[in-house]
Design a protein around this nucleic acid. Sequence first.
DNA 1: GAGGCATACTTAGGATCCAATTTGGGTACA
DNA 2: TGTACCCAAATTGGATCCTAAGTATGCCTC
Lengths: 239, 239
Amino acid sequence: MSDGTKADDIALALEEAIVSGEIPPGSTLRQEHLSEQFQVSRTPVREALRRLAALGLVTFEPNRGVRVRLLSLDEIREAFMVRAELESLATEVATPKMTDDDLAELERAERRFSRATQALVEMSHEGRQDLEIARDWLHLNHSFHDVIYRAADVHLIERMAKAARRTFLVKPVWATGADLDELFLKNDLQHRAIRDAIAARSPQGARVLAREHVLSSGRLLEAILDKVSAQAREASGVR
Amino acid sequence: MSDGTKADDIALALEEAIVSGEIPPGSTLRQEHLSEQFQVSRTPVREALRRLAALGLVTFEPNRGVRVRLLSLDEIREAFMVRAELESLATEVATPKMTDDDLAELERAERRFSRATQALVEMSHEGRQDLEIARDWLHLNHSFHDVIYRAADVHLIERMAKAARRTFLVKPVWATGADLDELFLKNDLQHRAIRDAIAARSPQGARVLAREHVLSSGRLLEAILDKVSAQAREASGVR
DNA sequence: GAGGCATACTTAGGATCCAATTTGGGTACA
DNA sequence: TGTACCCAAATTGGATCCTAAGTATGCCTC
């Protein structure tokens, strides 16, 4: 019960659980079950669900319950298109506004992300699957862009772009492999290029690079999804 | 109680009332007042408010009530930037997908909007203030873009662009005058240009035109807001 | 034995009730 | 006279209860 109302807390917790894949897409949520899980009555639970419904994470089916939304590949592609437009816009707006402090922070964020990418690639070479490293990678990826948002001071754009971020699940992001390493490294290099363009005070350049970067991330995710489903097919074929 | 739950109905009604300016921005909403207004208990009212809060139309201040969000000029500008990006993206996506039927419908929408613009300009010349005509104009403006969205078949983009549409109020749109006529007519011509680009199967061209069109609409709204506030200043000065 | 209808059970929607927090006014004291 | 404190009224947040809608199960009929 960190802050404010319980409905908000529950909404946050459920959002996290849905986005992280802890609650599988397509499953139906029982209000009573949630209420005893969070040790509250059904009232705040329902208010939280209304919020999630407005965000598009769940759908209400009157008198039948709420269902966790499951996204098609098309919708995931759309989400990346939206992010590409909005993040590139934010980057363009941010470029002239970035102070030296902001640039220094951006560089720190970029370094941290670089290290996370290194760790991910090493992990891939060793054939390990460390969910914590993968989660860190994703989080630091977002952190980089968050620095830009903060400098751009565009609350509405930020809010909508982050809504687009939340539409797809991060759970299946944990396929790695030699074929993907190249894409991961490219992703890392793109951060550097974006920062260079900002440092060079080129709004248009930064914009184009940011756009390409997000679309490239989308292709990376698609490659990962392909690989995951291929592995799943193989596994079921063996069985 | 057209469909589904009362919470949904109330949310729709409140959304309309807020966007239309019927409920003034910055005012606080009393749950009990709303419940007797809609002839229901406070429970569905609160669920409706949660939905509006998730959409960003109102803000919850714990134990203090909900406040209708009031937007700064900066945020209105942001909303138009978002719309410019998303609508141009949708237009680009739609262009190769438009069937002849879609194009015919787009032309009809454009014609209707043209007539609404004519009516608006005539009204301006006669010095009248007809809220119905103005409302029609805005509605038909949206209709034109809705045809494009339908053809593009991009639900997420459409949802987010429409969320951006809803962030600003349409109430102050009712200043007219000779200085604004030019901008209204330009707006109308841009629709024609966009349709021509789509008909010529030029996704990039349509995209650029759509972007410029939305940004131009933003400048139009700013001009209107300027005029309205100037008139308000004059009125209070006279008094 | 299969299909349809009725009934019981499950679950969501909505109303009412209680608790907790805020705010405004009034009073007492410096 | 101004300020601080306290109490009461108003209002929201949350819990419980009731109703209605939907689903499943079982019985009856063909």
